[in-house]
Design a protein around this nucleic acid. Sequence first.
DNA 1: AAAAAAC
Length: 493
Amino acid sequence: MSDSVATNTSTAPAAAPTFDQFGLSADILKAVRESGYTTPTPIQAQAIPVVLAGRDVMGAAQTGTGKTASFSLPIIQRLLPSANTSASPARHPVRALMLTPTRELADQVAANVQTYSKHTPLRSTVVFGGVDMNPQSDALRRGVEILIATPGRLLDHVQQKTVNLGQVQMLVLDEADRMLDMGFLPDLQRILNLLPKERQTLLFSATFSPEIKKLASTYLRNPQTIEVARSNSTNANVRQIVYEVHESDKSGAVAQLIRERELKQVIVFCNSKIGASRLARVLEKDGIVATAIHGDRSQSERMQALDAFKRGEIEALVATDVAARGLDIAELPAVINFDLPFNAEDYVHRIGRTGRAGASGDALSLCSANERKQLADIEKLIKRPLQVEPLEVTIRARRDASAPRRDERFGRPERTEHRHSPRDESGPRRRTTGTHDRPRGRQQPIDEFFLKPYEPSPSAMKRQEETVEPERKSAPKQPLAALLGGLGMPRKS
DNA sequence: AAAAAAC
């Protein structure tokens, strides 16, 4: 057998592949059929046989490629032989554990597992923070074979002794890079130390950074690498446009894009929680049904917002990057970046919410003059320039009701912008020349910021050199490597 | 710079 699954596809070249080819049980296939799936996606075609064979997997798959099913289906299959209908909790120990970085993602994975296992005697449940522990504890005490969790709450349950991980045979680390980004490494290590050494481990990550590789070499055994789409690449189904706008025009621009393009549903990404809440309120004032979702909202508000959005009751879901990864919203026609993300990888994840499952989608990004660095970073990451267009913003977004109100003359497009404080104008504008003669009250020309490629100013370069050079500036990186390296029990391949 | 996650 070839060691590379990617090149081992010559056995079934022409005929459309089906789920029947994997030898999955009839109960699983029935659930797959009822979900409406007939043809496995590339990641599924590659991963399912490898997982069924019991091998460890290092998977790089974009979200929206059917990744969840690619590990859930074979895991359910592998657990089936010892599944039983006994009511005794002792007969239902946790044998598969799936960890995700965010609560919403955990919930979503759990829903998938529930769906695919519904015709089997296997039990599953999900535990994450922000909600009452007691129902989770009850479910755990009744016994589940498959447990989906966020790391913190799982450890909480471990401490409460409501769950025992001593019989886990299969572990999934979903969005592993994100978990490391979020500082979950110590929690992951604590959890991993509770698991049997003899187990199957599946690690999925958008990128194979050195940290991820280190994690994999520590905890995976001779993993099979599976890569369906190059990481850091963006889906060809997604049309990407960047609109040049002034920071102060962004709210109006969002409302305008939603109206002009008649977007029935859209996720609007903001860089801050406050910004997301504010934009949601502004859009509501403009008659667009909008709700914010971010980490400062209660878990029930978050779940309500997501459910309502999935039901189509909300037009604009205004989100922070809590919603950037993994969330699967069927037929989402577009995402809008209100802000360009500071981290270019997050751009790829954000726009991956649209154009899923073969559908087409639009990724519309607003870029103000002081976001050129982010734009340059994104283009560098995805290795191609983005289409940049000016956007004439004619909608003057209604101001946030909670913001100080100095001018009630809404609806007058020619109205001059009175509320510019010097602070709002930080960044490039102050160091530019030739803008003093612009017509008063009209937008300052921004073309000059976009026409020439981004170059850090000499002073910025200098600052960077100064900050990078000293040893202790790189010190925060140390704990990660130290933690990984000092963990003992390195696995031999 | 910001966000996420256990109480």
